[in-house]
Design a protein around this nucleic acid. Structure first.
Length: 400
DNA sequence: GATGCCGGGGC
DNA sequence: GCCCCGGCATC
């Protein structure tokens, strides 16, 4: 079980739970945390309200055999989750930890698809679908997407009793809007990134006994809606968003072939998902910026980039700064239209790309032909060198 | 060996 | 952010 302190920051769950919580929520969270070993918290004064929180460890699975039984009886169960856990509120802050989220989401997705330990299976995942509302809640908690699932309660279109419905509405309005936001962050945002990497994107149904994989978002949603969430299709609105929770985006690289889902029909039809050729062409390095820089104008562009980004060594006169390379076509000066979005993406993937950069290609700049301060002034006149040269950095004065 | 400069550390 | 240096790649 994770310590209380960890909930607030990097952990998606923490992010979800962190910020302003209604009294009940806070209480429940606290209780839940205290009851950590169980993986369940109850709201004081509302014993029927429970909070499920995901504990990545193996220990959490044992949690709620009893609870499930209890919850299955009480219709308020589903709503209880929704009212107690407010994912969305913290969601705005999540953009800041986009990378973490992305990683966490990916890890969780893969985990959720891996066969759970026997002990866990019956408890969470294999909750029989029949009682859909219950299943939705339970599954969403433990199985489908780990931490994220906690908040999903509210959206579950589970056929709730009037009372639950009433309560649910209290929490719904804010949750919904924010949930949509979360969906964007978790499911829609990452998608383009993966596609950019030429990964074959597919969507796997996370419903316990179903591991159907579809290549289209619409398809998987429809599948979930019709096959798993077909309980009357009452609230189109709710179910629409709920579907998002029962599938996870996968890509060819992430998915281990042997772990082919039990669902026999391999949904990858050549027509629908043409085996996308392995990532870009070899010549194209992982980082577009780098590629362009290194290929088109190796030293000038990269030099000015590095200098500007890393050390702004008492740069030479501004004019000089821009002059030498004057790389008007340099990606750094890319049109602002794509700038904001690209910057976001680039930032999120930069870690891996940077790693590749460092390990795949020599990043040390080639020695330029230009005379450097050392040559020009000689080592005896070191005081005349540009600062960068004095500091053994890339010469700022005599750039290529 | 000289040179250029990256990466990192101290302040 | 400024300053410096170890260490590496290249010449």
């Amino acid at each position: 079980m994770m310590p209380n302190t960890r909930l607030g920051k990097r952990s998606p769950l923490g992010a979800l739970l962190g910020p302003p919580c209604p009294e009940a929520t806070r209480t429940s969270i606290a209780m839940a945390t205290v009851a950590g070993q169980q993986g369940i918290g109850r709201v004081r004064g509302h014993n029927d309200l429970k909070v499920y929180f995901q504990c990545g460890g193996a220990g959490d699975g044992q949690t709620d055999a009893t609870d499930r039984s209890a919850s299955s009886v009480s219709p308020s169960f589903v709503r209880s989750i929704s009212s107690c856990i407010d994912v969305p509120r913290s969601r705005t802050a999540q953009q800041e930890v986009d990378m973490d989220e992305l990683m966490a989401a990916m890890v969780l997705s893969s985990l959720s698809c891996s066969p759970p330990p026997p002990s866990q299976v019956p408890v969470h995942k294999d909750t029989p679908a029949p009682s859909v509302d219950l299943a939705a809640a339970d599954i969403s908690d433990s199985c489908s997407s780990g931490y994220w699932s906690v908040d999903r309660g509210p959206r579950s279109p589970a056929p709730s009793s009037p009372t639950t419905e009433a309560n649910g509405r209290l929490a719904t309005p804010t949750d919904e809007g924010l949930d949509m936001e979360l969906d964007q962050v978790l499911f829609e945002e990452p998608a383009p990134r993966k596609r950019r990497n030429s990964l074959k994107v597919a969507y796997r149904c996370l419903w316990p006994s179903c591991a159907k994989v579809l290549t289209s978002l619409v398809g998987i949603k429809r599948h979930i809606r019709t096959v798993h969430l077909s309980h009357g299709g009452e609230h189109e609105r709710c179910s629409r968003s709920e579907e998002d929770f029962y599938y996870s985006e996968i890509n060819q690289r992430d998915e281990s072939p042997p772990a082919a889902p039990p669902c026999g029909p391999a949904p990858f039809s050549p027509s629908t998902s043409p085996p996308s050729p392995p990532p870009p062409s070899p010549p194209s390095p992982p980082n577009p910026n780098c590629s362009t820089l290194s290929q088109s104008a190796p030293s000038p562009c990269s030099s000015s980039w590095q200098v500007q980004s890393e050390h702004s060594y008492q740069a030479p006169p501004p004019s000089l700064m821009v002059l030498p390379a004057a790389p008007t076509s340099c990606p750094l000066t890319a049109p602002p239209t794509t700038c904001s979005r690209q910057a976001f993406r680039v930032r999120s993937v930069s870690v891996g790309e940077q790693w590749l950069q460092h390990h795949s290609a020599p990043c040390r700049r080639i020695r330029s032909e230009a005379k450097k301060c050392r040559k020009v002034y000689g080592i005896e006149h070191r005081e005349l060198w540009c600062t960068a040269c004095r500091w053994k950095k890339a010469c700022q004065r005599f750039q290529d």
